[in-house]
Each structure stands twice: as C-alpha cells, then as structure tokens.
C-alpha cells in the first residue's frame, strides 16, 4: 500500500499539490487523471523524491517518510519514468539498461563489469520493447517512440515494488502503446503496483483497476474507473458545465 497524508507542494504562492491524501492499492494498476496543471506530474515527482515535500507524509509499507531523497526512492521500492523522456543520451541503448542493473556502491562498482546475467536480462527486456537490434546505438539516435520504449525498458530493469509511469503513452504509435500496456500487465502479474498518469481515457478505461482524479492539486474522486468516470464532478472538471 502506498499512501500520502496531507502532502503539499507550493511553487511560490501557488499550491501544485494541496493537502493531498490518497491510498493506492497494492498489486493493481492505478491511473491518475486530471486536467492540465492539476498536479499529477508534481505528485509523481514528490513520490519519487525528484521534488521535496513542503508538508505531509508519504507512507510506503511500514515506512513513513517526510523527506524523500531521489537516490532513496529505489530503497523504498519506487522507480519512475519522466514526462519528458530523460535517457542517458550519449551512451548506448544497452548501457542505458546496464546502468540501472549494476552495483550502487561507488566503491564496489569500481570492481564490477556487466556480466552474462546482466546481458541476458537486458536482451530479454530489449526484445520485449523491440530495441534489441538497436542495442549498440546511442540513445540520442533513437526516434521519439523508441526513446519512450527504452525508458520503459529501463524501468523494467529496476527491481522495485512500485512503478510510476508519467504520461507513458503520449506521442506513441499504436503498436508501441500495445507494448507499454503489455509491460504494465506483465509487471502486475509479478505482483507489482503500477501507477500511471495519462490523458488517454480509452487506455485509462481499458487498463486501470483503480482511478484517482486530481483537480487543482486536490483529490477530486477515486475508486473503480467505471464509477469515477460517471461522477458528475469529474465530468464537470473535464468538460465544464
């Protein structure tokens, strides 16, 4: 279970996330939706430690956290993609995966090299996202869709409990969307918790088991997608009166 208790984030005097308390069920695919500027990506940034909390607390399993440092997020069982793809551009596709698979200690990593098991795992992941043929290319040489898929592959290479996807389907071709959906379902089969932000209502309806709607940094609605998407408050937030 992932919970937030009255978490806050302010930019100047504007609340991007305003005393938000949500509970995200374990082992399900949860979608977060809301109009532009509703605080969805800020929430992902707060959960992953990319932005510091201005108030409140995040609860992950037994851990109650008021401060999350980015480098601690894998230790508390979280990993993420970014809204704007952020790859390690001038290194190879294969190295983009190896770098998240190998030793975290600066001292021990000096004596470690990518081994056979790393390569086998990277090969499996790159085959899933369809990039094995591109393994020796630099990440910057990939197309936009391929870059998004590599970011998803990099997430697969992380062994955590909670996976945060920030707009994973935006700008993807249909066959690539199917790949990402397949990855999410596969992670769910392994008991992982998936949280994704999206504007694509078709995918949200199809993929999510649980839905959270945000508006102006606050929780507007939550629950089963079919119920939430028929909620008049949600319809108003999206379509107006």
């Amino acid at each position: 279970m992932l919970q937030t208790l009255d978490i806050e984030k302010r930019f100047g005097g504007v609340y991007a996330v305003d005393r938000l308390s949500i509970s995200i069920p374990r082992g399900l695919i949860t979608a977060i939706i809301g109009p532009n500027g509703s605080g969805k990506s800020t929430l992902i940034n707060l959960l992953s430690g990319t932005l510091p909390l201005d108030g409140g607390m995040v609860v992950v399993g037994p851990k109650r956290l008021r401060i999350i440092k980015p480098f601690d997020s894998p230790n508390i069982g979280l990993t993420r993609t970014f809204q704007d793809v952020r790859l390690f551009e001038q290194i190879s596709v294969l190295d983009n995966l190896y770098v998240v698979m190998t030793e975290r200690s600066s001292l021990l990593s000096l004596f470690q090299r990518a081994r056979k098991e790393h390569r086998e795992r990277a090969e499996r992941i790159l085959n899933v996202v369809g990039l094995w043929e591109k393994r020796n290319d630099l990440a910057e040489e990939l197309s936009y869709g391929q870059r998004k898929l590599l970011e998803v592959g990099r997430l697969m290479a992380m062994n955590t409990q909670i996976y945060l996807f920030d707009e994973p389907f935006a700008g993807l071709a249909l066959h690539m969307i199917e790949v990402v959906k397949g990855v999410m379902r596969e992670l769910q089969e392994y008991g992982r918790t998936i949280i994704f932000v999206s504007h694509n209502m078709g995918i949200v309806r199809e993929l999510s088991d649980y839905l959270i709607v945000m508006d102006s940094g606050r929780l507007l609605a939550h629950g089963r997608p079919d119920q939430v998407l028929n909620d008049p408050a949600v319809i108003e937030a999206y379509l107006g009166n």
């Binding site: 952020r86 551009e89 290194i91 600066s106 000096l110 470690q112 090299r113």
Partner: peptide
C-alpha cells in the same frame, strides 16, 4: 570500463535522472 565508469557517463548525461535510480 567498470560499472563505476558507466555511472560516470550517466552522471554526465543527466545527473538528476541517475539519482532516481539509486545513485548518489
């Protein structure tokens, strides 16, 4: 050529992103 070297290159490319994957 070690894992350390690979992390250095990742730091060079995007220092904030590599931190999210557990590296200081």
């Amino acid at each position: 050529t070690s894992s350390f070297g690979r992390v250095l290159k990742a730091v060079r490319e995007d220092e904030d992103a590599i931190e999210v994957f557990g590296y200081r």
